[in-house]
Design a protein around this nucleic acid. Structure first.
Lengths: 130, 130
DNA sequence: CATTATACCTTGACTGCCTAGGTATGCAAG
DNA sequence: CTTGCATACCTAGGCAGTCAAGGTATAATG
């Protein structure tokens, strides 16, 4: 389903914060995870995510750390299945920028998640019965 | 709660269509009904609604009809105070512009409501557990 | 060696919502 | 009667997040 892009507004931030509260991830990975987790209902573009990531970092909600991709590819984008962690020690890898949520970011997440719940509940209340 | 206004994007149209599928209403009334129905969680401004109404009419989703406010005021929006319903039979009233949903508008409503369900479900899937 | 997937980034345009204003009528209080 | 408030309509200008489209570079694949 092709969503009116307008709906995206304001939801990217809480979603990013929520994902990073589970574990640190890099941008490209976040896009894949969102697309997988929503079963393709959402299709994030990099042009949407990266500016948001930088904004959140500037606001102190995230902290970034460059890191080489370790031997066992942690990505496994398709790889819904087990993802056998090959412990091969190859140190060569592409540069990845891992983002981790800060304490401040967690507080923001709580605020934004609650905001979303209130908001979507309000919309549902009006749409109810349709 | 003061929402990030960004969330509003894309939700005004389905909400308006949903309300008008129940009964014809005029703009000012819609604002009041939304604010009441969401218990103040949403606070629509006229500057938000009127342009949307005009857009929807231009697209053929709504049809407008001017009408004087009949004696018995159908509004009773706030009604917070007693506000004795003066049953004065004056037929003179303020001009109101009643909007009714068209067949085309109903189809659009179905599409948009489903879109909202899919979308909010996807967001919830990511926010789940927060 | 060429192609694809990964992984990062930025610029410019778009568009819908908000702010802040404007007009006019009806009604209640002073 | 006059003042004020709620009703009821409208618009112009600005803002800000998303998208489309482009760019760079490395690793894996055929």
């Amino acid at each position: 389903m092709d969503f009116s892009q307008d709906l995206m507004r304001g939801t990217v931030v809480p979603m990013v914060l929520a994902l990073l509260s589970e574990r640190a991830m890099y941008g490209y990975e976040i896009v894949k995870v969102v697309n997988a987790r929503t079963q393709g209902r959402l299709e994030w573009k990099e042009g949407t995510l990266y500016p948001a990531l930088h904004r959140l970092e500037a606001q102190g909600y995230l902290r970034a750390r460059w890191s080489k991709a370790a031997g066992g590819n942690a990505t496994s984008p398709g790889e819904t299945s087990g993802a056998g962690v090959s412990a091969s020690g190859g140190e060569g890898g592409k540069d990845r920028k891992y983002y981790a949520i800060t304490r401040k970011g967690k507080a923001e997440l709580a605020r934004r998640a609650e905001e979303w719940r209130q908001f979507s509940g309000a919309v549902d209340a009006v749409l109810m019965g349709v």
